[in-house]
Amino acid sequence: MNCFQQLAQALEYGPAVLATVTSVRGSVPREVGAKLVVDSAGQAFGTIGGGAGEAKVLRQAKEVLQTGQKQFVDLDLSGLPQRQTQGVCGGHMRVWLERWQGDAAKALAQTVLQRLQTERSLTLVTPLEQGKGPYLVENAVQIDPAIAFVETLHPAPTLLIVGAGHVGIQLAQVAHLIGFQIAVQDDRPEWANIDYYPQASQILAEPLDRAIASLAQHQNLYAALVTRGYTYDLEALQLLLQRPSPCRYIGMIGSEKRVRQVYGAIAQAGITNEQLAGIYAPIGLDIGALTPAEIAVSIGAELIMVQRGGTGRSLSERLRRALVH
């Protein structure tokens, strides 16, 4: 969504080029669908991986900005000495450069934004033929990849922060940086306010049951319980576990003793062990975090792990073991 916000803003001042990763092979820095925008002044927003590969894309994008001749840019990241490569990651990327301009492009960018902001996915078709521009279709379609690039765009996930204290303030900053929309709930307006949470799209300074009911339509909801007491955790868990659309993630702050106390109390409400096993508590990855900012980073890392399907292991672990043995 941030990319299309930047694109919509750029189009107010002239044409812009949208660079999109359309295929990858091997080890590469970004995934299919990763994007960057180059505005009419040649300024770039976003990234498709950085380094020499991105520099090559930026050079070509500035040409496309002038000529309008949309094109592929192939990036060789194999690092093989006999080739002119743009990196040593070990793989290959293909990037499509499309110039957006005029009223039709502005309207399309705004439509994409509006749908994503209202929690709706959409399918964008980008024809590869010169003279044909991108368009939306209502449902995913099968089109020959030699004719068009088809991608389904999903709204950014929403992180509900329950408890607007010191950890919540830091977590909102971290979660915003990693692409989450932020909703904050606390019945204390002196804590749950725009001054403490400028990143939040929703500030719910109201009872928890009303706040969670207002998020009933969110299909991609993550929740972090960083409250001031286990009674608030207990209420939040009961409400979140009863949502018709299950949360993608529920994490709860606290020591193991506090977590067990909550689990013991909530079991009496008919919550099963299988449901409790899906909760991340104590919240976050074990990085030795102590301060609110460090705890927020550990929670942010766990959110990424769940969203992307990671393991949480150190990336250097295998190589370090190989060096020792």
Rank of each mutant, 00 (worst) to 15 (best):
A8G: 05
L11H: 01
E12C: 14
Y13F: 15
Y13V: 09
V21G: 03
G26P: 06
S27G: 15
S27C: 12
A34R: 00
L36H: 02
V37I: 11
V38A: 00
A41L: 15
Q43T: 14
F45I: 05
F45M: 13
G49P: 02
G50Y: 13
A52N: 15
A52V: 14
L58D: 00
A61Y: 01
K62Q: 08
E63A: 07
T67F: 04
D74Q: 12
L80G: 00
Q84K: 09
G90I: 13
E98T: 07
A105L: 09
A105V: 06
K106V: 14
T111L: 14
L113A: 00
L124M: 11
L128E: 06
Q130T: 00
Q130E: 03
G133T: 12
G133C: 06
Y135N: 10
Y135K: 10
P145F: 09
V150Y: 09
P155T: 02
P157G: 02
G163Y: 04
I169N: 08
L171F: 04
A175W: 03
H176Q: 06
I178V: 15
F180S: 03
I182R: 04
D186T: 05
W191T: 09
D195I: 10
Y196F: 14
E206C: 13
E206V: 08
P207V: 07
R210D: 06
R210H: 08
A211E: 07
A213K: 14
A213H: 13
Q217L: 10
H218F: 03
H218W: 02
L221D: 04
A224T: 00
G229C: 10
Y232K: 04
Y232S: 02
D233I: 01
L241W: 13
R243H: 08
G254F: 03
K257A: 15
R260Y: 12
Q261T: 07
I266S: 03
G270R: 14
G278W: 01
Y280A: 14
G284S: 08
L290K: 15
L290R: 15
A293K: 10
A296F: 00
S298D: 03
I304L: 14
Q307A: 05
R308C: 12
G310D: 03
L315M: 04
E317A: 10
R318D: 14
L319M: 12
